[in-house]
Design a protein around this nucleic acid. Structure first.
Lengths: 332, 332
DNA sequence: AACCGATAAGTAACCGATTACATTTCGGTC
DNA sequence: GACCGAAATGTAATCGGTTACTTATCGGTT
C-alpha cells in the first residue's frame, strides 16, 4: 500500500483552498488569514505532506543546497573542514552536496559541472589547480567561494598566510638553537605547499642560517617517513625539521625514532595544520583553524546567494604557533 | 553580460531538431540517427549546455543523489565513513547529500524530511535511536539502508558484531593475565555502546572473573579521562580496562599516565573502532572497517534505487582484534 | 445601505526536463 | 514507383511547485 506522496494539490483539496494559498501559507507570506493558515497546516499534517524539492527548485530556481568540491576526503583536515561548513550551512537552512575531485583538472571540471542546477553556490578547495584553471572551471553565473587555495580575483577566497606561518615555525626552530634545518615540502603542484616552502626558505635567509635540506614529500605520512629515511641513509646532518603539514611531520617523527634519534633532543620537529592527531602526539605545529575557515566560507557563500553581494577580497584567517613536545627540549 | 543558461529548447533550436530528440540524444536512447546526435552534441557544446538537474528530477523523479544522515561529524570515525560512502557513490555516478542529526529525535525527523525529493535513497546512521523510532522516521516509499545501529526488520542494515568484538577484547585482557577488569561504557542511549557493554560482561561471566568496575562514559576523550580519574581518586584497583571506543580509551590512557601508572605494565588498555589515531598511539583495539561499511551500504543502496530490490538481512562486517603496545607487556 | 481601499484567495502560466503518442521519413521489396 | 513495416522525429502533456494577475471578501466610513 505504498501510496504516492501527497502533493500541494492534495493539500489544497483537503484544506478547501487553492494551491496558491497553500504555497503562501507554507512560505510564510503575510497575506494569509490565520484560520486559512491553520486549515492548511492541519491538512499538511494529516497527509504528511512534504514539498517536493525538485519542483520547488525548478520554479523558484533555488535549491537551498550548497556544493562542496574537495580534492579528497582523507584525514582529519577534511573532516574538520566539512564539519565547519556543515555547521554554518545547517544553521542557515542549507544542505551540503559533496563531491570529490581527484587531482585531474579534467575530472575537476566534471565534478563542478554535475553540480549545476543542484546547488545555489559552490565552495571549492583546489590547492592543486592554478588560479586561472579554477576561474575557467567555475560557472560564471553561480556564486562561489574558494577555500585554502590560490586566492581568486573574481571570488572571495578564504585563505591562510602560509608564508608567515611557515616562517614563524622556522624562526621557532632557529630560536631554540637549531641551525641545520631541513624542510619536507608538499606535493609539487600544490599551492599551499609551495607557499610554505617559500616561507621556510625566506626565514632561513633572513636569519642567515646555513643552507637547508629540502625534500619533496606528498602531504602524506609515508612521504614524510621516506624523505627522512633517505636523508639518514645518505648521512645528512640536521637538528630541526619543518614539515609541510602534520601528516608529513608524523611520518618523519616515526622515521626519526625508528632510526634511534630522539625528538626533540637530537632533532626538533614542527608540522603545519594542527590536526587533532598533533595534540595527541605532542607535535609542535602551526594551528590552522580549519573548521572556522569552512564555516566562514559557507557563511559568506550564503550571503552571496541570498543577496547577490559580490566582493573578492581574500579573507585571511590568523594562524597560531602551537608549541608541544617535539620542540620543547634543549639540543644535546 | 551574464546570460541565462541555455535550456534544452535553445539546444533544439540551434540543432534544428525537437526537444525530444535532444533529450533522447542526451540520454543515450538508441533510436536517434548518428548525424542528428552529432548535430545535437555540437549544439550542446556551442551553447555550453548543462541539463537543469531540478527539471530532470521533477520529470523523471530521479535525482542521482543519495542522502546521508549522521549523528554528528566529529572525529575520524565519521570522516572514514563518509570517505567510503563517497567512493562507492561517485563510482556509480551518485552524489552525496549530507545532513547531521543532532541527537534529538525531533530534529532527526527534520533532517530526514528535508531530504524528501532531493535524494533517491537514504543511508542513516542513528545509534541513539531505537529500531522503532527509525522505522517511524524513514519515509516508506524511499529506499533506505541503515549503518551501524540497531538492525531494522524492514531495511538492509550494515552492522558489526559489537558483542563478539567486545568479548574478544575482554578475553584478550584475561588472556594476558589481567583479572580485575574495568569497562568504560558509552552513552546510555547508544545501541552500540549497550551491546559492547553486554559483550564485556558476558566475557567476564564466562571466564568466571571477579565482578568488574563499570563506568558510564560518553564516547569522548574527556568522558574516558573523567571516569578513570574518579576510579583512581576512590582508590579502586584494576589492571585492565576495556573502553567502549577508541576516543574513550585515549582519554583513559592520558588519565592513567597523568596519575603515574604505566600502560600496559600497571594497567592494560584496549579500545574499539581502530581509528587512525589508535595506531599512532599504540592503542590495542578492535578494528571496525568503517570505510568498507560505508562503501557496502552505499553499494547496496544504489542497487535498491536502480532495481527496486528489497531484502532486509543485516550484513555483518567482520571485526578484527588489533594488538598494540597498550596490551603488549607483562603484568608487574 | 452603499461604497471604498486593503487584504485574502483563486486561476493559470511558467520553470525545464522526460516521454507517450502521433506523425514523418527511411530502406527495402515487388 | 508504389507500398510496407520499422526507425526517426515531432508534438504536447506531465511532473509539483511559485507567483503574476484577477477576482472575491473584508472592515470601516459616511
Amino acid at each position: 500500500m505504498k501510496s504516492r506522496p501527497a502533493t500541494i494539490r492534495d493539500v489544497a483539496r483537503r484544506a478547501k483552498v487553492s494551491v496558491a494559498s497553500v504555497s503562501r501559507a507554507l512560505n510564510g507570506h503575510k497575506n494569509v488569514r490565520d484560520d486559512t493558515r491553520d486549515r492548511v497546516l492541519q491538512a499538511i499534517d494529516d497527509l504528511h505532506y512534504v514539498p517536493n524539492a525538485a519542483a520547488r527548485s525548478l520554479s523558484s530556481s533555488q535549491t537551498r543546497t550548497l556544493g562542496v568540491v574537495l580534492p579528497d576526503l582523507h584525514g582529519e583536515f577534511f573532516s574538520e573542514l566539512i564539519r565547519g561548513m556543515d555547521k554554518a550551512a545547517s544553521e542557515r537552512g542549507y544542505l551540503l552536496l559533496l563531491s570529490t575531485m581527484h587531482a585531474d583538472p579534467q575530472l575537476a571540471g566534471q565534478a563542478i559541472a554535475v553540480m549545476r542546477g543542484r546547488v545555489d553556490g559552490l565552495a571549492v578547495m583546489a590547492p592543486q589547480l592554478s588560479r586561472d584553471a579554477i576561474d575557467r572551471l567555475m560557472p560564471e553565473e553561480m556564486p562561489g567561494v574558494q577555500v585554502i587555495c590560490q586566492p581568486s580575483k573574481k571570488r572571495p577566497s578564504f585563505i591562510i598566510d602560509n608564508r608567515e606561518g611557515a616562517a614563524s615555525a622556522t624562526r621557532h626552530l632557529l630560536a631554540i638553537g637549531r641551525r641545520r634545518l631541513a624542510h619536507i615540502a608538499g606535493p609539487e603542484g600544490n599551492f599551499d605547499a609551495r607557499e610554505r616552502r617559500q616561507g621556510f626558505l625566506s626565514a632561513i635567509a633572513a636569519a642567515g642560517a646555513p643552507a637547508p635540506l629540502v625534500g619533496a614529500g606528498d602531504f602524506g605520512e609515508d612521504g614524510g617517513a621516506r624523505i627522512v629515511r633517505d636523508w639518514l641513509a645518505r648521512g645528512e646532518r640536521f637538528d630541526g625539521v619543518m614539515a609541510a603539514n602534520d601528516m608529513t611531520a608524523i611520518g618523519a617523527l616515526e622515521a626519526l625514532r625508528a632510526h634511534g634519534l630522539r625528538v626533540p633532543e637530537d632533532v626538533a620537529l614542527i608540522g603545519f595544520d594542527d590536526i587533532p592527531l598533533a595534540r595527541h602526539l605532542g607535535l609542535s605545529t602551526v594551528r590552522v583553524p580549519v573548521a572556522d575557515i569552512g564555516a566562514a566560507a559557507v557563511e559568506r557563500l550564503v550571503a552571496m546567494v541570498t543577496s547577490q553581494e559580490a566582493g573578492a577580497t581574500p579573507e585571511v584567517q590568523p594562524l597560531e604557533l602551537v608549541l608541544r613536545a617535539t620542540t620543547q627540549g634543549r639540543p644535546h
